[in-house]
Measured scan of single mutants.
Amino acid sequence: DEETLERIAKELKEKGWTLIVNGKLITDAREALKWLLEEEERR
């Protein structure tokens, strides 16, 4: 759910983690959240 996604995005940002999505590096939590939401919609 959205709360979980926001928590994940926040944790990613705090830890300075990066996500690699389709070979693209995502360092911004907002971008990561946007991607996660798009993935949820596809299901």
Rank of each mutant, 00 (worst) to 15 (best):
I20Y: 05
I26R: 00
K13S: 12
A32D: 00
E2K: 14
E11N: 05
L37M: 10
N22E: 05
E2M: 13
K13M: 15
K15H: 10
K13D: 08
N22M: 10
A32R: 00
E31A: 09
E31R: 02
E11C: 15
L25T: 07
E31W: 05
E3F: 12
G16K: 09
L5D: 02
E39D: 09
E14T: 04
E38F: 10
L12S: 00
K15N: 12
T18N: 06
R7K: 08
E2I: 13
R7W: 14
L36V: 03
E38H: 09
L5T: 01
L33K: 00
L37N: 04
I8K: 00
G16E: 03
L12W: 12
E40Q: 11
E11A: 13
E14Y: 02
E41W: 12
E41D: 12
E38Y: 10
L36R: 00
K15G: 15
I26W: 12
I20E: 04
K34V: 07
T18L: 13
R43A: 12
E2D: 10
G16M: 09
W17Q: 02
D28V: 06
E41T: 09
K34A: 12
T18A: 11
A9I: 15
K13P: 00
W17A: 01
T4S: 09
L5A: 04
A9K: 09
K15A: 05
A9N: 07
I26S: 02
I8A: 02
T18F: 07
L12R: 00
R43D: 10
L33Q: 01
L5K: 02
R30Y: 14
W35Q: 03
L33V: 06
D28Y: 06
R43W: 13
G16I: 15
E41I: 10
E3S: 13
E40W: 14
R7F: 09
N22K: 03
K13Y: 10
R42Y: 05
L25C: 05
W35I: 09
I26V: 08
D28S: 07
R7D: 05
R7I: 08
E11I: 15
L5C: 15
L5M: 05
R30S: 07
L25F: 09
E38C: 03
R43Q: 12
E3G: 14
G16F: 12
I26K: 00
R30E: 11
L36D: 00
E2W: 14
D1Q: 07
G23L: 11
E14G: 02
L5N: 02
A9T: 11
E39Y: 13
V21G: 07
R30W: 13
L37V: 06
K15I: 04
L12E: 00
K10T: 07
L25K: 03
D28F: 14
E2Y: 14
W17T: 01
L19R: 00
E38R: 06
R42K: 09
E39H: 10
N22R: 03
A29F: 13
L36Y: 08
E40C: 15
A9R: 12
W35S: 03
K10R: 11
K15M: 11
A32L: 14
V21S: 05
E2R: 13
W35E: 00
D1I: 15
K10D: 05
T18I: 15
G23E: 04
D28W: 14
T4A: 11
E31C: 06
A32V: 13
A9D: 06
E2T: 09
N22A: 09
E39V: 11
E2G: 09
E40P: 04
E31T: 03
I20H: 04
D1V: 15
I8Q: 02
R42D: 05
L36S: 00
E3C: 15
R30N: 09
L19A: 04
E41L: 13
L19K: 00
G23W: 12
E6Q: 09
R30H: 08
K15F: 12
T27N: 11
N22Y: 08
L25P: 08
E6R: 13
I8G: 00
E40A: 11
L36A: 03
W35M: 05
I20P: 01
E3R: 10
I20T: 04
R30I: 14
E14R: 03
E39S: 06
K13R: 12
K10F: 12
L33S: 00
K13W: 13
A29C: 10
I8E: 01
W17C: 15
L12K: 00
D1P: 11
E2A: 14
E6Y: 07
L25Y: 10
I8T: 00
G16N: 06
L19D: 01
R43C: 00
R42S: 04
G23T: 01
R30G: 10
E40G: 09
G23R: 01
R7Q: 10
R43E: 08
T4E: 06
E41C: 15
G23A: 04
T27S: 06
E41K: 13
V21H: 04
L19S: 01
E31D: 06
E2V: 11
I8W: 12
K13N: 12
E2N: 09
G23Y: 04
I26T: 02
T18H: 08
I26H: 02
L36N: 00
E11Y: 15
N22I: 11
R7Y: 05
L37E: 02
E2S: 09
L25W: 11
T4F: 14
R30A: 12
L5S: 02
L37T: 03
N22S: 08
D1E: 11
E3H: 10
E31H: 02
R30T: 11
E3K: 06
T4D: 07
E40D: 09
T27A: 08
E6K: 08
W17P: 01
E6P: 01
V21Y: 06
K15R: 11
E40H: 12
R42C: 11
A9C: 15
W35C: 11
I20D: 04
E38P: 03
L33H: 01
V21C: 14
A29P: 13
L12V: 01
V21F: 06
G23V: 05
L36H: 01
L19Q: 02
K24E: 10
I26N: 01
A29H: 05
W35L: 05
I8Y: 03
V21I: 14
R30V: 13
L5V: 06
A29M: 14
